[in-house]
Simulated assay, not measured.
Amino acid sequence: MTANQANATEGTAGRATIDIVNVRLFDATPTQLFEAFSDPEQLAKWWGPAGFTNTIEEFDFRPGGAWRITMHAPNGGDFANESQIVEFVKPTRIVFDHLRPMHWYRMTMTYQAVGEQTELTWLMKLEASPESEKLREFIEQANEQNFDRLAAHVAGVIAQQ
Rank of each mutant, 00 (worst) to 15 (best):
P91I: 09
R62Y: 10
V23M: 10
M71C: 09
T121Q: 11
L120K: 04
R149P: 00
A113S: 04
T31Y: 01
K125Y: 12
W104Q: 02
E57F: 06
E87T: 14
F59I: 00
T70I: 13
W104T: 02
A13N: 10
E119K: 15
Q42R: 12
A8Q: 15
G65C: 11
I85S: 14
D39R: 00
A155N: 03
R62N: 03
R15D: 11
T55G: 05
L33R: 00
N81L: 05
N146D: 11
G156N: 14
A155S: 12
A142K: 13
W104H: 14
L126S: 07
L120N: 02
A155F: 06
M102K: 02
I139Q: 00
A73I: 07
A50H: 14
W67I: 13
V154F: 00
A50F: 15
L25T: 04
L33V: 01
Y105K: 05
V114W: 01
P63W: 07
F61Y: 13
R93Y: 04
E87C: 13
Q5P: 01
P49G: 05
R15H: 13
T17D: 14
A152G: 11
G76W: 04
F96V: 02
A152L: 11
V154D: 00
A44R: 12
S38L: 01
T2Y: 07
K90Y: 00
N75V: 05
